[in-house]
């Protein structure tokens, strides 16, 4: 299989944030979901029902498949959150953790 490399057709201003401890380069105006896609990251969370992995699906805020934890807040739609310098994003594993 030829992997479907995601890439950008232009460069704007680069900012960086963190996903699962790794530095990810994004561009100003990207949603978190878009930036992760450009970085080749497709697996964003586990389903809370079966634990199956899920990634982006609709990119317009309708499907809630791209839920991630952003700066400690669970259940954020990655496609609806704009990237900011220094964001800390984590995969959402099953049922979002409560802050105990």
């Amino acid at each position: 299989m030829v992997p479907s490399r995601a890439r950008r057709i232009e460069e704007v201003r680069t900012i960086s944030f963190e996903f699962e401890g790794l530095a990810v380069q994004a561009q100003e105006g990207d949603s978190v979901a878009a930036a992760l896609t450009a970085a080749g990251i497709v697996d964003l969370r586990d389903s809370p029902v079966s634990g199956a992995p899920r990634g982006i699906y609709c990119m317009m805020g309708a499907c809630f498949d791209c839920l991630v934890e952003i700066d400690g807040q669970p259940n954020r739609q990655a496609c609806m959150c704009e990237v900011r310098e220094g964001l800390v994003v984590r995969r959402q594993q099953g049922r979002a953790e409560l802050e105990l």
């Binding site: 995601a6 057709i9 878009a34 450009a38």
Partner: peptide
Amino acid sequence: LLKSSGIVRDN
């Protein structure tokens, strides 16, 4: 992805 970030996926 293309409209908002200029991102495409090959293949």
